Simulated scan of single mutants.
Amino acid sequence: MNLKAKMDFSFSFPNIILDKRQHLLYEGLKRLAESINKRSFVENILAKFKNSKSPKGVYLYGGVGCGKTMLMQMFFATILAGKKFIHFQNFMQELHYKVHSLQSANGDDKTVQNLAHEIASGAIVLCIDEFEIKDITDAMLIMRLFSFLSQNGVFIFLTTNAAPDDLYKDGLQRELFLPFIENIKKNFMVLNLDNEKDYRLEKVASTRNKILFPINEENNTAFNRIKNSLCSSEELYPGKFAVFGREVIFANTHQNILFTNFDELFMQDFGYADYVKLCQRFGIIVLEGVRRVAEDETNIIIRVINFIDNAYFYKVLLFALLEAEPSLIYTSGKRLAEFQRAVSRLNEMNSSDEKLEQP
């Protein structure tokens, strides 16, 4: 088989300019990818059985927006062999489902080992974005699975916000997880990408028109360009947070970014506290499909007003695609004066210098 035919170009990097630290790490990752690509089929088989001094994986950590996912994607795109790229939360969902299925079928102690073999049969490189450990059950499952994956010759690339020693910090029964941390420090390339720049934020914050209207082909194209500059569809995962003990879930999130629509944000029975928590949780919100609100839809316009007020207060970077200019979204009803104030805030959020204009 022609290996070049297996290259994955699902990630593209137009006009990417790496800073000094990113460039240095990328050069190292590129050399690592080249060494993986040069391994023969026989060497991949032998990797399962020999004790090699070469790293068993990469552990790349740093703050939000510093470029971890971008570097992982660039590494992933260079790999020619079998590979898999997945967000950690999606990975855990798949993992729990498969563990349950295998237990139902086998009912023995080799469930995780069998699962590792299944993963290894499809990928010798496994990239997991936004790795984190929240409970001891997941911690122990991951510890066993990664051990078996390494035994099967799978190269594991993790991105995360936490240094190895901070993984599952202050978690219950954390001492049981310490061997995993020691294994990461001993056998993985541990790379730190900390800097204070959020490149995604820097890239889109200067966008002149953040609030677009009406919904037409031109504005759809512009809005999609904004979305694609923040992250790819492969990076999206369900995001959740608790409000007074109640769990709120949004379908599409990435780190501190929420991608949502009118129905998801305003047609649910959300109260003021939900929007407070929402705007504390997400620094960037991308909202589309905002329609006109009728005079008798008082509950809905209250939610719209509450959302705008909190997005304004918490300085959320808001991008929105509206059916009509903001002042025409709600033109009559009991909350008209409050909504007009919200429109004024949208003007201010859109640009510190410009009023809302059609692009």
Results as ranks from 00 to 15, higher is better:
110 K>E: 14
233 S>W: 05
44 N>F: 08
6 K>L: 12
349 M>F: 04
35 S>C: 03
185 K>M: 11
321 L>Y: 00
21 R>H: 13
331 T>S: 14
179 P>W: 09
87 H>Q: 15
89 Q>W: 01
49 F>A: 11
259 F>E: 03
339 F>M: 05
164 P>Y: 10
179 P>N: 10
346 L>C: 04
339 F>Q: 02
141 L>N: 04
19 D>V: 05
37 N>R: 05
324 A>W: 01
49 F>Q: 10
219 N>R: 06
24 L>F: 13
352 S>P: 02
317 L>S: 01
91 F>P: 04
161 N>P: 02
210 K>I: 06
297 E>P: 00
272 Y>V: 12
95 L>D: 05
359 P>H: 12
157 F>I: 13
116 A>V: 08
10 S>Q: 14
343 V>C: 12
145 L>S: 06
83 K>C: 06
44 N>K: 15
147 S>H: 12
23 H>C: 07
315 K>F: 02
87 H>I: 06
118 E>D: 15
90 N>W: 02
264 E>I: 05
70 M>S: 01
349 M>C: 09
150 S>G: 08
332 S>A: 14
127 C>K: 08
103 Q>E: 12
160 T>M: 04
253 T>L: 09
117 H>T: 13
142 I>V: 15
106 N>R: 13
341 R>V: 11
153 G>F: 05
31 R>P: 00
70 M>G: 02
209 N>A: 10
244 F>V: 06
222 A>I: 10
273 A>Y: 08
161 N>R: 13
86 I>G: 06
302 I>L: 13
221 T>F: 12
206 S>W: 04
191 L>I: 08
124 I>D: 11
83 K>S: 07
224 N>E: 15
264 E>G: 02
310 N>A: 11
110 K>M: 13
201 L>D: 02
